[in-house]
Simulated assay, not measured.
Amino acid sequence: MVKINAKPVNFKLGDYISNGFDFLKNNFGDVFVAFLLCMIMGIIPFCGFLGIGNFYRYCRDLRAGKQVSAGDIFNFDNFMPYFILQLILIGGVMLIYIPMIAMMPLMADRDPSAGLPVFFIMYVLAIYIAIIIVCLKGFYMPALISLGGITDIKTAWKMSLTMTKGNLLTIFLYSLVVSILAQLGIIACFIGLIFTLPLMYVCHYFAYEDAMKQVTYDEIQEIGIKNEF
């Protein structure tokens, strides 16, 4: 049985990007088809996160040399955790917009030339920063759900909090770099997107794979090692 011992992860920014590039280059056909199906899953209501999670599992099995099929992207085993996560996100967005809607009548009476009220700008800025922090702290939740088998959202959140401890700035820089790489395809008249967009998700997979290796151990193997001594 594989156990998870959540602890701060040694984040290897450069390794994830280089390993992701090599893996995508060597398996481009398989990964690209799986990525396209992942995008199709995103069209289905409440299945976008599930498709991405299944893409990570596909990359894991492909990397391990297992028999894989692009149809694995349409696996619904982890539907409920991602469904609940998306409901939480929708609820959070609604809570964010309620104060903004309440401010609109006040803003409508203002002179447009006066610009936006300071308190409105401060509110939007605070919300933006809060969203970034929450996303960074929950960075490992997809890995814990799809690769670690954690189906309880609260447990996955607490584990991710521990795993990201001390790494928020590094994870932010990594996410920024990977996002820029993904957008480079637009500069190449959109043709480059067929490589750079899958690259972003593959790099995420390597970040998740390494993190799971650092926080998991096989209880059965550990018992066997102890018995040898």
Rank of each mutant, 00 (worst) to 15 (best):
D210M: 09
I150E: 07
A64H: 00
N27K: 05
V31C: 00
G53P: 06
L87S: 08
A182S: 13
F76I: 15
L24D: 00
Y201A: 08
M80S: 03
D72Y: 09
G42N: 10
E219G: 03
V9I: 10
I127E: 04
L161C: 12
M141D: 05
Y56L: 10
F23G: 05
G115Q: 08
G224E: 15
C59S: 00
A70C: 13
R57F: 01
I73K: 03
G53C: 04
I129L: 15
E222D: 08
K213R: 11
L168E: 13
I187F: 15
E219A: 14
G48L: 06
M80I: 13
F35I: 00
I180E: 03
L85A: 14
F79C: 08
V2A: 03
I90S: 02
F32V: 05
I84F: 13
F139M: 02
F190A: 15
F83H: 06
V2S: 07
A182I: 01
I127R: 03
I223Q: 13
L193P: 07
V178P: 00
L176N: 07
M122N: 06
C38L: 13
N19D: 13
A126R: 06
L181A: 07
N27A: 07
K7T: 12
D109S: 14
S160Q: 04
V134Y: 05
M103D: 12
V202F: 01
K165W: 09
I223W: 03
F35E: 01
L36A: 14
L50Y: 09
G149Y: 10
A207F: 01
G138H: 09
K213C: 07
G138W: 09
M80Q: 03
G65L: 11
L161R: 14
N26R: 07
P105G: 04
P142F: 00
I187R: 06
V2N: 10
E222Y: 01
Y208S: 05
K137G: 06
K66F: 02
M104A: 12
L197M: 15
M100K: 11
R63A: 01
V68Q: 01
G91N: 02
F139I: 09
T216E: 11
L176P: 06
T162Y: 00
A114S: 14
H204N: 14
S113A: 13
Y56R: 00
S69L: 00
K226D: 03
G29V: 09
V68T: 15
N10L: 09
A130N: 09
A156G: 10
F35K: 02
L181K: 05
N227A: 14
M200K: 08
F21C: 04
F195D: 08
M212G: 05
N19A: 03
C38P: 01
I84A: 11
M141C: 08
F195S: 04
G148T: 12
I40S: 12
F195M: 09
T164M: 00
T151I: 09
L168V: 13
L161D: 15
F23N: 02
I121K: 01
E222K: 11
L176W: 04
Y128S: 15
L89H: 08
L144R: 03
I43Q: 03
